[in-house]
Write a protein that binds this DNA or RNA. Structure first.
Lengths: 145, 145
DNA sequence: TCAATCTTGACTTATTTGCTCAGGATAGTC
DNA sequence: GACTATCCTGAGCAAATAAGTCAAGATTGA
């Protein structure tokens, strides 16, 4: 497992926040629904706020809401905001120049891995995830009945 | 960077070992060529031996050689041998059942990421890597000339 | 016999992760 | 204008992991 809980929880929080557009949801609510520690969530969502994904509404009945439409947020930017680079190896990291001058023989492989990752994560928007989450919950309710 | 140096060095060692089929190469040689600590390399290649990728030849003029043809070894098995699972999140790990019963909404995303990874790594054989490594070195020699 | 090489396992050191805790700032509501 | 819900910040900490290092031995060719 190499995606930290930080990024995983951040994505899940965004799904909850994006679910009811217009009205803010408190972190307490998000924490209960997703089973995440409140204090830890505060740290994570703080990062998402500073990066411009969500807005906070302070005071009683406050909470968080999306700062941009869900269809305009993709999983790649969310994950890298919370996690930093997710390149498989250092060679492939944005600003890095290879110490062994490309003679190791594996660099092209890691580039292909990196490209595949960006394609999958960059091609999934928060709007997609919200739909998937709702379908999953629906399917589960039917299963229980 | 989430592929450990262990797996990276292991792949690079296999490229060196697979380069001259038939004759064993010492780890000292591999360590010098690839710029890796000898003792660390011993640990790593030991793992590859136990997993059946390479054979050791003891004594003077000994070393390591491939135990299977290079075209029959793919990067996915090498990496997972040295690294354990490379699933992005625990949900997706082979024997794991999801604690939040699939209501988190992100599981499908991680499955897609995992599938993309397996495809790229599983589709690259050691024989491919050896060719790529030789092309790289050739290109570099021309560049220097 | 000697030296080159493989083999094993314990140990170390630094970093990261995943939290917890304490305390504050801000703003609606009664 | 007190009360309370909420956001916000930074320090601290235990456990795990990574990336080696070190020491000592086994095996075999020359």
């Amino acid at each position: 497992m190499w995606i930290s809980t930080r990024a995983q929880y951040g994505l899940r929080a965004l799904i909850e926040i994006g679910r009811q557009p217009g009205q803010p949801i408190s972190l307490k609510e998000v924490a209960t629904r997703q089973g995440i520690s409140l204090h830890y969530l505060e740290q994570i969502v703080g990062g998402l706020r500073r990066a411009g994904f969500v807005q906070s509404v302070r005071g009683a009945r406050g909470g968080y809401q999306l700062a941009r439409p869900a269809a305009g947020i993709n999983a790649y930017e969310v994950v890298t905001t919370l996690e930093g680079s997710i390149a498989p190896v250092q060679c492939v990291e944005d600003d890095h120049t290879c110490a062994s001058q490309n003679v190791c023989g594996t660099q092209e492989l890691w580039f292909r891995v990196n490209a595949a990752l960006r394609e999958v994560l960059g091609g999934t928007t928060l709007a997609d995830l919200i739909v998937e989450a709702q379908e999953q919950q629906h399917a589960r309710l039917i299963q229980l009945a």
